[in-house]
Design a protein around this nucleic acid. Structure first.
Lengths: 214, 214
DNA sequence: AGATTTCTTCACGCCGCCCTCACACCTGCT
DNA sequence: AGCAGGTGTGAGGGCGGCGTGAAGAAATCT
């Protein structure tokens, strides 16, 4: 379920967009000023920004540039202005797509899907992992399962962190050993094997048939 | 400097696009049919595809889908048709952007820049193969068929990867043996034969009459 | 310093991967 | 036909990597 941040000052249009998006099973957050837009973007980490140029305070372009400075989140611009400079400026400021009002609903939705599809590859480095009913916060060194807090050792956090940085991908033993144990013992997998075993016994529902640590 | 593959059957428009792009220091490759489009895309590995829908042979949509099956290269669609279904279909087929003729030169250039900018940042070397109803992700070591996950052994992934690097071409036994088994056993094809057999029995719809692993 | 947690080491059983082998087949050539 | 080179196939077995429990070092806490 994707989360959309709608940046739009006109309440009527906001309402239209919200209804349209929620009918497609998106969750919506709204912002009516440039300032709130950036706050919401930072706090909620939406999957895509849908922004109307021509906000009351400050230019919409500024929002694009400021968000782009710290996040690669896809940005779709919605604007009544058909002026070319506006389009070019928005795209060059970092926007991913530009839809002119009056827009057609199917087209807008298709462009949102395209923007979201592209982005799944490059997700932001978040320190919060989540498998099944498990939540692991690498930065705060906390792990919580269905039955309360789970204690992990420092070594286990470092191994998890290394795996999290390459989420979903294959991480070679060599790479783990280099990043966690140092480059001296590239071919001694004994400690690593035990560490993984312990992690599995702590995190996996059924340690004998692991689902997350493969 | 970036390389653009122009897919357009009308020579006049091709010329316009080429001049426009070369003035911006892009290098251009041209294709006037769907078939040539895919060949050029495979051989030249352009940084972005600029495709006109409505090619003489086959639908432009097919090109998009076929290219998208093996490459995440950005695709910008250019079309005279203003029909909504066309837009939505193209975007959902995997296109990244859609510009309607008559287009403005600055806007087209800005959209190309946006497409290119996205791709350099989020270029995960995803090696995704697709034959028929089969999808094989070499990086993540996953293979999925119509009936769920298919288990492949490490050796099988390496052989597939070697074949994938020369997709569609003939790969000599010698070359496979050198790249997968090492240069010692250039003339012992026994293991290779068994490995190919197993791959076929796992991937081919009818292993006795192979369609993909020839 | 003792206690406690954390990390490493070790030995052993198991499983799956890969190799090998023998044989059937196919195609072209003599 | 007979032969020769290359290929597809089923089965068996060696072997290395992985998981595991327990116990010994090392580090950290109090």
């Amino acid at each position: 379920m994707h989360q959309v941040l709608i940046i739009e000052d006109d309440p009527a249009i906001r309402q239209v967009l919200r209804v349209l998006l929620e009918a497609e099973n998106y969750r919506c957050i709204e912002a009516d000023t440039a300032l709130r837009a950036e706050i919401e973007a930072r706090s909620h980490k939406p999957d895509v920004l849908l922004i109307d140029l021509g906000l009351p305070d400050g230019d919409g372009l500024t929002v694009i540039r400021r968000v782009r400075a710290w996040s690669p989140v896809p940005i779709v611009v919605l604007s009544a202005r058909t002026m070319e400079e506006q389009k070019v400026a928005a795209l060059d400021a970092g926007a991913d797509d530009y839809v002119t009002k009056p827009f057609s609903a199917p087209e807008l939705l298709a462009r949102l899907r395209a923007a979201l599809r592209r982005h799944v590859s490059g997700s932001a480095p978040t320190s919060l992992l989540q498998f099944g009913s498990l939540r692991v916060d690498l930065a705060r060194r906390e792990a919580r399962g269905p039955e309360g807090e789970i204690h992990l050792t420092p070594l286990e956090f470092r191994v998890l962190g290394c795996l999290a940085r390459h989420l979903g991908a294959i991480v070679m033993q060599r790479q783990l050993l280099r990043e966690v144990w140092g480059p001296e013992r590239l071919d001694d997998s004994r400690s690593l094997r035990v560490c993984i075993k312990n992690l599995r016994s702590k995190l996996e529902p059924d340690p004998r048939q692991p689902r997350y640590l493969i």
